[in-house]
Design a protein around this nucleic acid. Structure first.
Lengths: 329, 329
DNA sequence: TTGAAAGCGTTACCAT
DNA sequence: ATGGTAACGCTTTCAA
């Protein structure tokens, strides 16, 4: 691939002049400009962004680290941030960690080496090694999905405690007395911890007995199904189930249906996220609408702000949600 | 951010020596190695990959261009390719075009400027400007979802004609006489064109009348719903519907249910893709399993092959599918 | 075992 | 209006 040098020789001018033509700078005679442009097409010149980045000390690159690209929260979030960064002229460097915590840390380092201007991190946990890795990062990092504000990490989160609280209130209003909770792994402070806490607070607030159980599993329909199957045996008095995600809730409804109980009648079910799956299943799933696309946009804007003004104007942003009333509660 | 130079001064050695230590090269005295390593941590040195890339003329970067990140086909495909590239030590540069054909071409150029080693392009069409852009690319490009083999563009495609044919046969065997087709936009030769063609061939093969209609719309549930609503008025004799995607089929089933007909009984419905939505809806959707994750993996492998051995060993790869029998047919 | 210097492809400054 | 040259941060060759 030919460089500036080749073009210069071909056009009989200096590299400087070619550079000026390429960058549309003033002070180039029209005739030489043409000569150069002809030479450019002749040898199929294509600017080398790597060299430019080195020279200008600016890459226009943003790193994104996700635990699972194909999940609803991530793929919608990606879509939102891609939109913002596209407008800002930034390119996206994407890493899929498959929930591997070491990879997460490795990519923070690799992206720093690549001189990205900032990193967006979809998090499903937040432990000491990760916090340290984030603190060691030269470039700003915005956390999505976990609250890192205690450690001075700018974060975009959903209102997880309040969603748990609202869920509790909705179930109580629907007449539930024996409420269970199905979460995910316990390291996930947002999805597993906060949503459960909110539920507990609602029950206390309404002077009801504490939740029957707090079960832990995966983010999948299958996991929701398997857990519920067992839990139904164990807790025959169960009359309401709050699930940390819609997929879990959908699995739960299948298990409930299988023992000839009716979700929404015998056992109320509530999910979180407003996954499209909940619209088409039977009964349709009552849930909470989480603004995933918006979380991507907001985190992108926050990161851009952090990149431009080195000091953060906002250190934490809590996204609201809407209750979605459907068949299961 | 401090560079090799700073470390060198701090350790009292030359840049060359520091470079050797960083890259674990032989021939550095243990004592100096230690000195250097101490200096490295002291000034928080972090290798500059941009400079390395420029020097080595190698970026380990792969560009991915997609029309819609959050779609099933793309997000699963991304997941598959991310896995392969991670193992190969490549990083992913991601662009979301939102179906904007010009952006597609723009990103092919931008990625070339960034000196990516190859590009993976999820395509929903293939017109002359795009073909030319691909031919002008210095780096290899693999097409996903459209057949570019006529133009010598390496492609990974699904067996779209055969899926249409199979759909036709399935519907005929189920007793259908009046079959309609709902596709997408007509520029999508794979999803709209090939799947319809296959259906036509099946009907010919079985000596049945041609499809009642070939309708065009979007890739959404809503679009499937709206189209079907109209089509049901227009074609009261309709007893089977082949939809180019599962989402369209799900929308169609809703419209059918709304006029008090039963999908799978009064009107057979078949989709394509095996979206999870089809598992949970009622009736569950009969469809064809498309290997989206695999398409990502295969395209990644094909691209890597193209990057290493400049000549392609395989120019086109057609992925197979399985029939999924559920409630709607 | 170590260092000096060239060079990767740009841009920017200083001359002319 | 144009050219020469240094510099961005690194690797690599050649010498010492």
């Amino acid at each position: 691939m030919s460089g500036l040098h080749t073009v210069a020789k071909l056009a009989g001018v200096s590299k400087s002049t070619v550079s000026r033509v390429i960058n549309n700078e003033y002070g180039v005679k029209a005739s030489t400009k043409e000569k150069v442009q002809k030479a450019i097409v002749e040898c199929g010149y294509m600017a080398n962004q790597v060299a430019r980045d080195l020279k200008s000390q600016k890459t226009n690159l943003i790193g994104v680290i996700a635990p699972r690209i194909s999940s609803n929260a991530v793929s919608l979030g990606l879509e939102g941030m891609a939109d913002i960064f596209e407008q800002a002229g930034k390119h996206l460097l994407l890493a899929n960690t498959l929930q591997n915590n070491e990879k997460e840390i490795e990519y923070i380092m690799r992206f720093n080496q690549r001189r990205v201007e900032g990193i967006l991190l979809f998090a499903t946990h937040l432990d000491t090694p990760l916090i340290e890795a984030i603190n060691h990062s030269t470039v700003p990092i915005v956390l999505i999905g976990q609250d890192g504000s205690l450690f001075n990490i700018p974060s975009i989160i959903h209102d997880d405690i309040r969603v748990g609280f609202s869920a509790g209130m909705r179930l109580i209003e629907a007449g539930a007395k024996n409420i269970g909770f199905i979460g995910v792994h316990s390291q996930d402070a947002a999805v597993d911890g906060a949503r459960y806490q909110g539920l507990v607070q609602a029950l206390q607030h309404a002077k009801q007995v504490a939740p029957l159980f707090h079960s832990h599993g995966e983010f999948t329909i299958e996991s929701g199904y398997q857990q519920t199957k067992k839990l139904l045996m164990e807790w025959p008095q169960l009359d309401a189930l709050f699930c940390a995600t819609d997929r879990i809730a959908i699995g739960a409804m299948r298990a409930i249906t299988e023992i000839n109980k009716v979700p929404g009648k015998d056992i109320k079910v509530l999910g979180v996220g407003n996954d499209e799956l909940g619209q088409v299943c039977t009964p349709s799933l009552s849930t909470f609408n989480y603004a995933f696309t918006l979380s991507g946009k907001k985190s992108a804007l926050m990161l851009l702000d952090l990149i431009e003004n080195k000091n953060a104007e906002v250190s934490k942003l809590v996204l609201s949600f809407d209750a979605i009333e459907r068949g299961s509660c």
